[in-house]
Design a protein around this nucleic acid. Structure first.
Length: 428
RNA sequence: GGAGAGGUGGCCGAGCGGUCGAAGGCAGCCGCCUGCUAAGCGGUUGUGGGGGUAAUACUCCACCCAGGGUUCGAAUCCCUGCCUCUCCGCCA
């Protein structure tokens, strides 16, 4: 959420940002609403002030009531007067409330302003490659897709998962399950060693949490929802972990705060029916280890570089070639100011695929979730900046390992760093 | 699932329907005093919004879990929800 005052004072900039994001929100209409909101608030405040004064007078008179010469009519007059005020106040309050609701319905769906370093562009073709690491392996045989390899080794069962749940689910079996668990532990240990505190949060959350990080109200169709009682399945650990500090005022010396969390993630994948129908790339349920930071505003862009480097290091440790893409204005997510996608090389698809997305949200989520901090020597509070990134998506990492480490005989070599976690060097 | 208790400021804790943004204590900050330390004395310390200012000052409104209601007036009364705690039952 943007600060309405910021919108008021930087209207041109906001409009330009929205245009670059292919958004069509009417800012002028919003500002008109905001104007009338302020007028109504003044009106209501004024009425309340008068009411409070008269009510106090009535109180004083009532105390004098004990005396015989007390004038009853005065109380009656005052009461009549205050009743008139109350009526006008009610009207003003109702109007105010309705205007506030209208304003909220708009501000909640205004996307974040892209950072100045974000390239302007209409879609993903305008994203900019920042760097590349590792050389895609040269195969002396035709490399296979991970689902074919996994099926042959009987380590992933998509068919029976479909029977149990439906399309876009998988059963990990034997060393497949073991690999999934090894990656989870490896990633959590890796992140822990880099200063992230491990947390294991709820994966069902309430509406407020989903609103705080920006999934709601705009992206309800992406979420699995439990109707009664109302809960949402998290699409990413970003939601519960960022909301850990919702509504809090942190002390300056508590910052920065780094968390890492493993959670399953649940996504409807509505509107992607034809895409990635086979394999682990696009599942309704997948595992992910997430990195989340709460930082002071002046550090957030350095922190974004650091967070991205932390995620990249996991791929380096695993020996998986990747590249880092800077997303353009047309491709960046709703809540983010700046995002790097890390894409891993998949030999079976002979292309890079997103495996991590690292974003700085600046104060966008903090304002929604009311996450503030207080500087030691200053009065008042400020919003923190929040960041997060996958470190990493486990299902896609499994796919990448299977495809990059496949051997001619159909076996899979296990990356060195995972061998103690796996208790095996090879899957065959 | 049944029965009960409770949610007040950074923390503890009081609060009769009006004089309560809220006693008192602790902690913090600023002074004073005491040859050190401890104690003592005085003052001060919340959040959001509006107006105002170059910025302060100043001023108005709201906030005692949340949302409704009663009332001239609600932290205080009523209703609903959420959360916490105790006991019983049930399940792990």
């Amino acid at each position: 959420m943007l600060d309405i005052r910021f919108i008021r004072e930087n209207t041109a900039l906001v409009k330009e940002a929205l245009q670059n994001r292919n958004s069509t929100i009417d800012i002028d209409a919003l500002l008109q609403l905001e104007n009338s909101r302020r007028g109504l608030q003044q009106q209501a405040d004024e009425l309340r002030s008068r009411r409070n004064i008269i009510s106090e007078e009535i109180g004083m008179m009532k105390r004098l009531q004990l005396k015989p010469d007390y004038n009853t009519d005065m109380v009656k007059d005052k009461t009549a007067e205050v009743n008139e005020i109350a009526e006008a106040l009610k009207e003003a309050e109702d109007k105010l409330k309705s205007v506030e609701e209208k304003i909220a319905s708009v501000t909640m769906i205004i996307p974040n302003i892209p950072h100045a370093t974000v390239p302007v562009g209409k879609d993903e073709t305008c994203n900019v490659e920042m760097r590349k690491w590792g050389e895609p392996r040269l195969f002396d045989f035709q490399p296979l897709n991970h689902w074919d390899i996994a099926r042959a080794l009987d380590i992933i069962d998509f068919d029976r998962a479909a029977k149990i749940a439906g399309a876009r689910f998988a059963i990990m079996k034997g060393y497949g399950a073991r690999l999934e668990r090894a990656l989870m532990n490896f990633m959590l240990d890796h992140n822990g060693a880099r200063g992230y505190k491990e947390v294991l949060p709820p994966i069902l959350v309430n509406r407020e949490s989903m609103t705080g990080t920006g999934q709601l109200p705009k992206f309800a169709e992406e979420l699995f929802r439990i109707a009664d009682p109302e809960f949402y399945l998290v699409p990413t650990a970003e939601v519960p972990v960022t909301n850990i500090h919702a509504g809090e005022i942190l002390k300056e010396d508590e910052l920065p705060i780094y968390y890492t969390a493993y959670t399953p993630c649940f996504r409807r994948e509505a509107g992607s029916y034809g895409k990635d129908t086979r394999g682990l790339i696009r599942q309704h349920q997948f595992n992910k280890v997430e990195l989340v930071k709460f930082v002071k505003p002046e550090h957030s862009y350095d922190e974004l570089e650091g967070l991205t480097a932390d995620a990249e290091d996991i791929l380096r440790q695993l020996g998986l070639p990747y590249r880092v893409m800077l997303l353009c204005t047309g491709d960046i997510g709703f809540s983010a100011s700046k995002t790097y996608d890390i894409e891993v090389w998949l030999p079976g698809q002979t292309r890079y695929r997103e495996i991590s997305s690292c974003s700085n949200f600046e104060d966008f989520q903090a304002r929604r979730a009311k996450i503030r901090f207080k500087r030691t020597d200053k009065k008042g509070t400020e919003f923190v900046h929040t960041l997060n990134g996958s470190g990493l998506a486990i299902g896609r990492t499994v796919a990448a390992i299977i495809e990059n480490y496949q051997q001619k005989d159909g076996s899979i070599t296990i990356p060195q760093v995972l061998r103690t976690y796996m208790g095996a060097d090879v899957i065959k």
